[in-house]
Nucleic acid binder design. Structure first.
Lengths: 165, 165
DNA sequence: TATTGTTATACTCTATAACTATA
DNA sequence: TATAGTTATAGAGTATAACAATA
């Protein structure tokens, strides 16, 4: 893909061989790269997360998602949580350690298979998780000046197809 | 959001208070969280990137994007690259150091403003960048068993609206 | 033997403050 | 004074190997 000639013989001679500061950058091959656009969109959603959920609740993204999963499903094994969140087993251990230390969850040995554990929310954990669920709504609303409700739903549906694991 | 009762009085008494291993996890509040679905989709696109571009070219995502931007626009200042890729200035310095060390680009002082630099591709850098552009195509094609071409385009358009910076 | 979870460790990525050289 | 870029440093996120307990 050859680049557009940015200059013109008649234009005031620029001393530098580079596009004007005011000019939007061309994306070139990045234009049709889904991964690139996902990364760029994540910059926006990460900012929103930090403002609406991360800061107020003191939870990182993985911590928040983990609490939401237990809130929705009841007790779960670290193994299943790790698979659902695409985290390695050692990282899941550390994540659970932190949340347990904060008193948001506890671990019980499974009676069925004593290698396995049940991770469950404490009272405080359930309280925070509930609050987190509620606080998610205004965060999504904040997207509605960029996206209609229908577009928002459509976008999630398409991302689901990509994620499909 | 109360969780569905997973048990039934008549069912064989489970010893553990948790959903069956075979059962899909409920997402609860995560269901309408755009950020969550973006993160999940990124797991897939990151895998694809690693296989099609990262491994073969020995380039990380930020390195690849940077090369694509210079290929498409010609010489650019680190400042503009940092803004375009949402990287901090110190991280941009390190990124450029690595690529320069590999002989893929070089830095020149700007003649217009001697605080600023022009980052430009070397011959080898241009060669790798070209190869990267070409190798991107089969990567996107690999998505087409999950997404039609129209859905792929639509998805990128929606992500653009979210990213909008 | 295989699986669940842990420990230890290292590497990448990101964030911040302090500095330099130019404007 | 303000801006472009650098250096130094620390923190978060992620990956891998070796291990203990249980199946």
């Amino acid at each position: 893909m050859a680049r557009e000639p940015a200059r013109d013989r008649a234009a005031p001679e620029p001393l530098d061989e580079r596009v004007a500061e005011t000019q939007l950058l061309a994306l070139g091959h990045l234009n049709n790269l889904l991964g690139y656009h996902i990364a760029q969109a994540a910059v926006s959603t990460d900012e929103l997360y930090e403002r609406h959920l991360g800061q107020p609740l003191g939870l990182r993204k993985a911590e928040y998602s983990l609490l939401m999963l237990i809130l929705a499903n009841g007790p779960l094994a670290p193994k299943r949580l790790a698979q659902a969140l695409a985290l390695s087993a050692p990282n899941m251990t550390l994540l659970l350690d932190r949340l347990q230390e904060r008193g948001l969850l506890r671990r019980e040995r499974s009676q069925v298979d004593r290698r396995s554990q049940n991770v469950l929310l404490t009272g405080e954990g359930e309280r925070i998780a509930q609050a987190g669920g509620v606080a998610a709504e205004p965060m999504e609303q904040a997207l509605f000046d960029r996206l209609s409700a229908a577009e928002h739903a459509m976008l999630i549906e398409l991302l689901r197809k990509v994620a499909q694991r």
